[in-house]
Design a protein around this nucleic acid. Structure first.
Lengths: 70, 70
DNA sequence: ACAAAAAGTGAATTATTTTGCCCTTTTTCG
DNA sequence: CGAAAAAGGGCAAAATAATTCACTTTTTGT
């Protein structure tokens, strides 16, 4: 999973939950500007920043062995 | 999955593959010091840095809905 | 035990992320 | 349609990650 995919997942999940970027910022403690950067795909967040956001969205990171060796 | 778990997975996987931190650094293009930081748990890498490392280890990131709401 | 290799750490510098402020564009909905 | 809400972006300051160099500690293998 690439960074852009992660960003899209975040955007979709937030939409699904019916909260705004501002809400996500307030609850996660991550700056609004940063969340905008991430959701538009222009961003390279640190793990901690990403995890803060994912937590609010009820999601989590996982690391696994690649199934398909492209 | 927390940051510390990710760090441990990286460390274990590198060990399993029988390569050194130096090797991982050379192949991934991520600085040796950065890799050391990550493996010892003192680190907050950006997603891109993390992905570079995971690629070399044949691993990948995934984002998913939390199964257990602790 | 000893030497070599690998891993861990400190400090200083550079590069990048994170942030707030402010404004523009797009979307929502009465 | 028209106003309000939400999203998208430019810019510069502050915070933090990434890197290099040098050294110490630990681990590995003979």
């Amino acid at each position: 999973m690439h960074l852009v995919d992660i960003c899209n997942k975040i955007k979709e999940r937030r939409s699904l939950l019916g909260i705004t970027q501002q809400d996500l910022s307030d609850i996660s403690g991550v700056g609004l500007r940063t969340i905008k950067e991430i959701e538009t795909g222009n961003g390279n967040p640190s793990i901690n920043t990403l995890i803060k956001i994912l937590n609010v969205l009820g999601m989590e990171l996982d690391v696994q062995i690649k199934r398909t060796i492209k």
